[in-house]
Design a protein around this nucleic acid. Sequence first.
DNA 1: GTATTAAAAGAGTTTAAACTCTTTATATCG
DNA 2: CGATATAAAGAGTTTAAACTCTTTTAATAC
Lengths: 143, 143
Amino acid sequence: MFSKTYGYALRAATYVVLHGREDQKVSLQDLSAALDVPHHFLGKIMQDLVRHEVLESTKGPNGGFYPNSRTSGLNLLEILKITDGSIVFSTCLLGIRHCNAEKPCPMHADFGRCRDGLLESLRTKTLQDLADEVGRGTAFLVR
Amino acid sequence: MFSKTYGYALRAATYVVLHGREDQKVSLQDLSAALDVPHHFLGKIMQDLVRHEVLESTKGPNGGFYPNSRTSGLNLLEILKITDGSIVFSTCLLGIRHCNAEKPCPMHADFGRCRDGLLESLRTKTLQDLADEVGRGTAFLVR
DNA sequence: GTATTAAAAGAGTTTAAACTCTTTATATCG
DNA sequence: CGATATAAAGAGTTTAAACTCTTTTAATAC
């Protein structure tokens, strides 16, 4: 349903919200170690997040990633659009192109219910919400 | 979330329930044309369904696929296990291995709700249910 | 200004799903 | 029995996601 890239992006962004500040940047090394995600692969993903202004980065010694003013308030759907393009959500469980309410597949209603529920969560939850749960110790970013 | 193979398998099996009988078999040609699914790819999928006794087949002139006594009563989860192996449902949205209720990711509850709802649909709906909807004209197997 | 550190960028490789093509086995019909 | 039709089987190819490696750019510290 979603790419691994999306999961990695959410975890990394959440980690940066929790631990990064302009005067205390999180390096790619720290990130990939803390989250147990392949270093260079995560590099690509972070690059993309920076390009889309989800967060900031600087190179050089003490360089790394840190939040900007928008970061913590971004919702999970906005991140999904960046990594997966949001087409994900328009797919039909039976693989029918242009399956819709007028000409639905037999699973359209059931799948739609599931999808819409999750969509609502992604729309309302922000990176800050994820960070809060992790900070509180009620949720985790690694196994 | 699910493979295309699964969608194709469900549509094909439903079609066979609707249109196939031992004395009126559905050929692969008819199936792939009616469902607009690649001929040979569907062949592989059908082969797998026959091997798992979801339906029957015979070769030769007037050969093709037709339901057996179990077919129409099979639920959608049983088909999923055949095509996708059911690991699909244990995956974590954030890509964390062994994400679970004891040590959940911050999306565990939301995703779980979505997943469980759909799981329940797959468990309760049978191929006959799909066929009924299509037969009734309230749902479709092609766009 | 030079060395160093860390992200950015680009160019691979790997893997698995999706899809194609060809050959073989088997059932039916004349 | 021979011809034919159709699924089974096997061996590709293609595509995209996931992941790796190397080089370049830029920021900092000395």
